[in-house]
Computed example of a mutant assay.
Amino acid sequence: MSLVPEEIRLRLPHIELAAQVYGPTDGIPVIALHGWLDNAATFARLAPKLRGLRIVAVDLAGHGHSAHRPPGAGYALWDYVHDVLLVAEQLDWPRFSLLGHSMGAIVSVLLAATFPERVQRLALIDGLVPPTIEADAAVATLAEALRGRLTLAAKRKPLYPSLERAAQVRQRGVGQVSFEAARLLAQRGLMPVEGGLTWRTDSRLTLATPMRLTMAHVQAFVTALSCPTRLVLAEQGLLAPREGLAELLRQTPITVECLPGGHHLHLDDEQGAQLVADCFNPFLSAP
């Protein structure tokens, strides 16, 4: 598979998204979804190692080179599900597989559970379900989120003198990454402004989530999965320590592979990307 992806624009009825495309035009259709505050470059090492696939790695709304949602709108997980369905419609893919990392894995699970007739296979990297709350915490959660919205206009994005400096900061962010991985994400995620560089990402993405699913909601989605699903867990990732994960997985036929590395094991280095590819190549190419 080519190391250099094709850049495309996807003009949906309500928003325009950017994407990077890997693989032959007649390859098995796969939509790839990145994690929170990342972009399509998260698949830069992995996608070229996946054989026989037509991979469309999307910059989710508000990320990378995609448009931001209009004023007053938010970034709920189910809005991303809607976007991905419209991406599939534009690509004329009635059925497709999903490759998701972190938040992208969560969106993939919601879509596959809700529209089982559309999703052929589900390949997940260190992501499965969102953080949950119970009903008695909903009031405080909503209050925190709305207070954040009220003060957002007074905040300014960070300014960096160089790509290297931005990559150093990203390296220490959520889901710590190698410098080379941070640099790949920063190359796609930065834009020039007066005085230096800043992130293209919509600032609203840093706000607290107004409403979270309960554990009962999460169980309903996970147990509704009917397509073959493989989850790669990173030994030093964000998902492995999650309370209740083992019990949740026992309720499903999801196959789990635990690999060495951190949350971005598929991007941190070539070795990690190859290990993930070795898990997904026979899985995604199976009939």
Rank of each mutant, 00 (worst) to 15 (best):
A154P: 00
T206R: 15
G175A: 10
L150S: 13
K157N: 10
T223I: 00
P253Y: 04
I28L: 14
F43D: 01
R9H: 03
P228I: 06
A182V: 11
H65Y: 06
R9I: 00
S226N: 04
E89S: 14
M191E: 15
A143S: 14
G189R: 06
V177P: 01
L111E: 13
E144S: 14
Q251M: 12
G23T: 08
P94Q: 09
T141N: 15
L150C: 13
A47F: 02
A61M: 02
P48S: 08
G62R: 06
G104L: 11
L275A: 13
V169M: 07
P260R: 03
G35C: 12
D59L: 04
P24C: 01
E235F: 00
W36E: 01
Q120T: 15
L231F: 03
T141L: 15
A44D: 10
T223G: 00
C258Y: 00
L233A: 05
I133W: 09
V4H: 12
E6L: 13
A135I: 15
G64K: 08
A57K: 03
S2L: 07
T132Q: 15
L249A: 08
G100N: 07
T25D: 15
L77E: 01
L150Y: 07
H63G: 04
L46Q: 04
L124V: 11
H266S: 12
E7K: 11
A216S: 12
L185N: 09
D269W: 05
L111D: 07
V174S: 03
V222S: 02
L159P: 09
